[in-house]
């Protein structure tokens, strides 16, 4: 029986990771009202970039993480300009089909290039192993995740609240027509935001290789998790998705430790119940 505190900390680490992976979706889906089921594909890209750099080229882990984020951001930017712009404002069925299509394409490409197997990485020694902390065992990598992702969350929170870009984004999302009329470059704001969200997903994907596993099925396998974070957390703040992700991480890890026979059923049930209990979490800003 794992100690409750270890489970809790593992859950928090998983939740933090989930937050970084999904926060971009909470902007595209929650604020921009685009059903983007392909969000996980950016995470997958980040994961593969990290694996290749780390395993084949021997790039140091922190650099590989940065490169993963940059690659995912670049792909997000290009896809947004080329494709996503055409499905803003279209009906949900179109957005669903479009994004499922992207998932299939990227999954197939990943399969061709990297094979269907689950990828493994060798973490640097300073991140592997466990350490004792007042009698509580905690993996170094989990601790690293908590610190890094916590830092990202704080940066985002203050970035969105305090900076001019944050204010412009909120204006553009609130009323695109008015914002355009006021001379805000709404298109550019959206594409920068999209790229940022994709980049964070890429970072999350790279960080998650060790914990979530990485294979061409990654985007579909974790799609529901991302959606839950957005649905439960809402899109009004950084804190909402952050808390939702933590909750989800802890519930998921605890479930896997203590009642593995129920499996993912808990998460799906939680998703449905929470959607019904507070759909405004999802739709708070949508009219």
């Amino acid at each position: 029986m794992a100690s409750a505190i270890t489970v809790l900390l593992d859950g928090v680490a998983a939740g933090m990771l989930l937050f970084v992976l999904s926060v971009g979706l909470s902007v595209t889906l929650g604020l921009m009202n685009v059903v983007n089921l392909a969000h996980g594909a950016f995470g997958m890209l980040g994961g593969y970039v990290c694996v290749v750099l780390l395993n084949r080229l021997g790039v140091p882990f922190p650099l590989a993480l940065l490169a993963a984020a940059a690659a995912a951001a670049a792909m997000g930017f290009v896809l947004e300009r080329l494709l996503y712009v055409h499905i803003y404002g279209r009906d949900h069925l179109t957005q669903v089909l479009f994004s499922i299509g992207l998932v299939f394409i990227m999954g197939a490409v990943a399969d061709w290039l990297m094979g269907a197997r689950t990828q493994l990485i060798q973490l640097p020694s300073w991140l592997s192993g466990r350490m004792e902390f007042a009698g509580i065992g905690l993996g170094r990598y989990r601790l690293f995740l908590i610190i890094l992702c916590g830092f990202v969350a704080l940066a985002l929170h203050f970035g969105l609240v305090r900076t001019r870009f944050g204010a412009r984004l909120r204006a553009a999302v609130d009323d695109g027509v008015v914002a355009r009329g006021m001379g805000l470059p709404v298109g550019r704001i959206f594409s920068i935001t999209f790229a940022l969200g994709s980049g964070l997903a890429g970072l999350g994907g790279a960080l998650g290789v060790e914990i979530l596993g990485l294979d061409p099925n990654f985007p579909l396998k974790y799609m529901v998790y991302f959606l839950v974070v957005v649905a439960v957390g809402g899109a009004n703040s950084v804190a909402g998705p952050f808390l939702a992700a933590l909750l989800l991480g802890v519930v998921d890890v605890a479930g896997k430790y203590w009642i593995p026979e129920v499996g993912a059923f808990i998460i799906y049930t939680a998703m449905v119940v929470l959607l019904l209990a507070r759909p405004q979490g999802l739709l708070a800003r949508a009219k």
Partner: peptide, 19 residues
């Protein structure tokens, strides 16, 4: 649940049954 949330409820229910 409403339109967008309803879409996700259908997804969630489908996955629940699968599991």
């Amino acid at each position: 649940a409403g339109e967008l949330a309803g879409l996700m409820v259908t997804l969630g229910l489908g996955l629940m049954l699968y599991e």
